[in-house]
Simulated assay, not measured.
Amino acid sequence: MVRASSTPAPTLSPQFCFNERLLRDFLTLSRSTIDDSITQNLNALVTPARAGFDPSSTSIRQTDSPAHKTIDPVACQNFKDRVLFPSWQTRSDVLTYCAGVATSPDPEDPDLLLRQTESARDRERVVDERLDPYSARFFPREARTESLANLVRNQRSVEEIIRARTWGLVLERCGGGVDSSSGWEEALNRWRERSQR
C-alpha cells in the first residue's frame, strides 16, 4: 500500500522566496500530494479485509463504497499527526518566512536603480493634462518585495480554503474524536503543542 508523505521542506533563503515560480511550485506540489488527493489518501487508510475474506460477499452487490466507511481512529490520528499536520506546518513555515523576507529591506533588488531613475524622471516631468489627458498616468515598477508580499497574501488565502475543505473531509471520514468539534486551526495548534513536548 502506498502511503502519502508530506513534501520535504525547501531550504529557506531570500532567493527561494524571490523566485516566485519556485515558491508556487513547492506549494502546488505539497497541496497536490496531500490536500488535492485527500480522498485517495483517506481511502488508503481503510482496511476492508481486516476480518478476513468472506466468499459470500461476492454474491451480493456491495453498495457501500469506501468513501462512506469510517476509518480506524488510530489510523486517522496517525495520518493527521505524521502526514497532514506536518505538511500544513511546512507550508505555514515557508509562507511565514517569505512574508518576513517581503517586509525586510531588499538592498539586492536588481530593479532598484531603474525604479529610482524612473521616480526621479517622473518628479521632473511637467504634465499638461489639457494636451494629453493620459500623461498624468504613471505606473511605477513594483518592487520585488511588494510582488512577493502580494503572492504570500494570495497563497495564504488559498491555504485557508484548501485546509477548510480538507479538514471537512477528514472529519467526515474519520468520525468523532478529539478534533471533531474543532476547526482545522485549533487541531493544528494542538498538534503543534503535542509535537513540541
Rank of each mutant, 00 (worst) to 15 (best):
P86T: 07
L42N: 07
T11W: 03
D111Y: 02
D25S: 10
G183T: 05
Q196V: 10
N19F: 02
V126D: 11
S147C: 05
P66K: 13
S119F: 04
A75F: 01
L27I: 14
R115D: 10
R141P: 01
D72Q: 02
T96L: 08
P48T: 06
L112N: 00
Q40E: 15
C174I: 06
D109F: 01
R190I: 06
R153V: 02
L188T: 07
W191T: 10
R3Y: 02
P110T: 02
S32Q: 15
V126Q: 15
F139H: 11
S59E: 09
P14D: 12
A143P: 10
G183Q: 02
I38W: 00
S37D: 02
L114E: 06
V158T: 11
S59A: 09
E160K: 08
L148P: 04
D81Y: 03
L45N: 05
I38S: 00
P107G: 06
D35K: 00
S56F: 09
P66F: 05
V170Y: 01
L112F: 00
W88G: 03
P8F: 07
P73Y: 04
L169W: 09
N78R: 10
T166C: 12
L188Q: 08
F26N: 03
L112S: 00
S37W: 00
M1Y: 07
E193W: 06
P105V: 01
D35W: 00
F139R: 12
R31M: 06
L171S: 06
P107S: 08
A9W: 04
L169K: 15
T11R: 11
G177K: 00
I71W: 00
R190Q: 14
D111N: 05
A120H: 12
A120Y: 09
V127I: 15
V46H: 04
S135V: 09
R130A: 07
N19M: 04
S13N: 12
R197S: 07
S182C: 04
M1G: 14
A9H: 11
I162S: 07
L84A: 08
L169H: 11
L169F: 08
V94L: 14
D81N: 15
R144M: 03
P10N: 13
R156N: 05
F26Y: 15
A187T: 11
F85S: 02
P48N: 06
T90V: 15
F79W: 05
C76A: 03
